[in-house]
Design a protein around this nucleic acid. Structure first.
Lengths: 372, 372
DNA sequence: CTGAAAGCGCTTACAG
DNA sequence: CTGAAAGCGCTTACAG
């Protein structure tokens, strides 16, 4: 029934065709400079054709399709029906060129081999795609220079918005972002800086909290093992240090900070080395779950009792941590929530709103399991 | 020194300015219809400005910058110097609109929670980005309908190329791809169909090979445990079946095919249930390493000897499998290689070449470790 | 090897 | 609430 009605409307519309000739240079009465007009038609349905079928001007069709207010409801319906009938799909390139804004949203993350960022990306993508935005993934490999390069090429695309990880970047990158005027939300960390939009949690407090937990369980010689050494890792290290200093337990010789990439293998090596160098060590806080999982497996291999001899804690609550033997105590970080909340915040910014608060602390949760 | 030379050239160039006025409607002698010309300048450096500085026409500047042959070497140098001096960055939207081709390359994968696809994406991205192409990631969640939707929206962007996972899609999707004329390479699987470009390996043969290995180790009641049940999983199941039938060992009751998502937890459950239902089972081939890892941890928890009582094999050789207790025997799949090779093949197609062979079999490798 | 003209398919900025 | 004109910044198709 509804379809019938629409068809009728369209028929009427066609009957009272919009008078403006779409191709003025092909109008019979107007002589052409050359024999034939140059055509480069891509065969795609254009806004003009939709407007013609709906018997309105192209601008009205454009406004109707974009849901801009101040278009008469019946015209909107006519345009939408015409678009549907012709299978019209707007050309993003033409739209970007005319409006100086594309529908691209670059998301820059350090790497994809950490499930943490994959979860963030997935959540961002799910939140943005229904609103017509395309997520562009950029991988910086924790290198500010590489991020600057990526930013340069992505900014050239006139992105609708920008999602960046953390606050550690080159001065040039900072200036490019500011100069572009593109709305931007920062992920994973928080900052007291006013007017900066960010979604994350306090890495420092999380590092402090899990260490405090180990202390509360009676552990006294608590080691810290970390890889990669990115800014957030170092913030967690600071939380660990502050906690142990508060208890008079800090011992710099129990720290293992290695710059290489995080992995289960590396976690096993760090565990082995640590217990060899410091047999009195009674707990290890691994900065990421993959390290901790490797540590637990090494303990199994070496016959070291966990948590009997040494307690083990991880960070992020990655897949499989609850399946370990014993299950891994860790800090659950809200990465899907960060992805979604940052996307919503960016959506608001892209609509020209000023979302409040500008800094969203999504917290973290201790997952206390058998390993501590 | 070189910079000096370039500067001189530029100075000369500026001295003999390209005669064509860039903004004819602002030429003093020409009266304007309205008081002021309508300007919507984005503040960005345009090709016109580069051409003006280099004292050539915009088309020549365009050709020089794109490295098109048939531009005099000295002009190319002048244009490049001018572009560098002005910090010119081409506008992708304008380029896409004029040329009917963007620099976007959508890559559609089933999901991001499997490290397999993350590795493929990462390799694709690394291979494409240096050539100026932007990788657009699309997640289909193993749903052909969802893939069709994504394809529709990505095709509207006039992508330069397309990378798709497998051959299982809707008829509408197939037609859209064909009608678009966009070069396309298929990932992960192979097909005998002529003229189809694909990079992968035989899922069937890999399933067969790992099963054969278990048989060769004297196993007789070999179970198969799989989740997700996507086409490639089912091809591996067929390889498993054919192998056991060849040996007269096939027993349908030893198969566990569950549609839910793959995970370590599920692997543990399948392991537990299988050994309970079939205490005589002496080997399990898990269709993915996360399942197998969960199985190994369940064995540890239950006190089931691996490989003493039951051998365990996985698939894909994911991170951590070599760290398990015992280390997991599995099939190493060349996902980074698939990502890179498919990108290279697509690059060739986008240049208009016809890469041979059109079907690239990258094989697989058994990684025989302690669990079998 | 180089250039003048037109056009890609939209939206902005003005008007009414 | 609706429309005519111009323009976004490139490249294609023709010429020479």
């Amino acid at each position: 029934m509804i379809e019938n009605r629409v068809s009728k409307n369209l028929d009427q519309a066609v009957g009272q065709r919009y008078p403006n000739p779409i191709h003025p240079h092909t109008t019979p009465g107007k002589p052409l400079t050359r024999a034939e007009p140059k055509r480069r038609s891509s065969g795609r349905v254009t806004l003009n054709e939709v407007a013609q079928l709906a018997a309105v001007s192209p601008i009205t069709a454009s406004r109707a399709l974009r849901g801009e207010r101040s278009v008469a409801p019946d015209l909107v319906a006519r345009v939408q029906a015409a678009a549907a009938q012709l299978g019209y799909v707007p050309d993003p390139a033409a739209r970007a060129l005319a409006s100086q804004r594309s529908s691209l949203v670059p998301v820059l993350v350090p790497l994809l081999s950490n499930a943490l960022f994959v979860d963030v990306l997935d959540a961002v993508h799910r939140s943005l795609h229904p609103h017509g935005f395309q997520t562009l993934i950029g991988v910086t490999h924790y290198d500010p220079q590489e991020e600057e390069q990526l930013l340069r090429s992505y900014l050239a695309q006139r992105p609708a918005g920008l999602l960046l990880t953390g606050f550690d970047r080159t001065e040039a990158a900072r200036q490019m972002i500011a100069a572009s005027g593109v709305p931007c939300v920062y992920l994973m960390e928080l900052t007291p800086a006013p007017g900066v939009y960010c979604v994350g949690f306090s890495q420092h407090d999380a590092g402090h909290a899990i260490t405090e937990h180990l202390v509360s369980r009676g552990r006294r010689r608590i080691a810290f093992a970390a890889a990669q050494l990115d800014p957030r890792t170092l913030q967690r290290a600071e939380g660990y240090r502050r906690c142990l200093r508060e208890h008079g337990l800090y011992d710099a010789k129990l720290e293992r900070l290695v710059p290489e990439a995080s992995s289960m293998r590396l976690g096993g090596e760090l565990f082995t080395e640590l217990l060899q160098a410091r047999p009195d060590c009674d707990a290890i806080f691994f900065n990421n779950d993959d390290l901790a999982q490797g540590g637990l497996l090494a303990a199994l291999r070496l016959g070291v009792a966990v948590p009997g001899q040494v307690a083990v804690a991880g960070f992020n609550d990655l897949s499989g941590s609850d399946q370990m033997l014993p299950p891994l105590t860790t800090v659950h970080t809200p990465r899907r929530e960060i992805g979604q909340a940052s996307a919503l915040m960016l959506l608001a910014l892209m609509r020209g709103e000023s979302p409040q608060p500008n800094s969203q602390d999504l917290g973290f949760e201790l997952r206390l399991r058998g390993s501590s």
